[in-house]
Amino acid sequence: MQNTNDKELLFLMHSGDRRAFAELYRRYKRALYAFCVRLLSDAQAAEDAVHETFLKLSSGSDAIAQPAALKSWLYSVARNEALMALRRRRDGGNIDAGSVWDDETPLSLAEKEDVRNLVQSALARLKLEYREVILLREFEGLSYGEIACVTGDSASSVKSRLFKARRALAEKLAGVWNEERDNR
């Protein structure tokens, strides 16, 4: 099954082959779970979102118009599940449309933590619409076109959002890296 491509696995899965479904799960579980955990900062909610994603895949998945775009479809479903979880938690992070950050000073909360934690903390507090494009591009390696399929935007809008998100993160973390360079 490892040499079978996603499209073939979908065909086999639709004809009732459980091994094909298990292989698709094996292929995407880590990436989808990591995406949801980083988006939600909540392991349990991320687990639920990924579970729901594979539930949708197993229950017919007739929404997959193009089997070749399975990867984008999976991220899109996981993202929607995560957004619903965020809405339920009422901390969607879109309250202040003018701000890039979800709260005031991420670094002040984590001043004594190491660089990794500072980066993670800054990322977790980045506004949702910026965080998701950073996650999809930097961690999942999706192209602008694929990210556009997931978020429902145009590729040029994705490019622009990525730029703003990176700039905000880089500005927030500039001091950290300068200090790290000075210490070397």
Binding site: R30, R116, L123
Partner: peptide
Amino acid sequence: DLRAGLAALPAPEV
């Protein structure tokens, strides 16, 4: 720097 910093983050275990 940002790219390197993000790449250094550990992936969460399933």
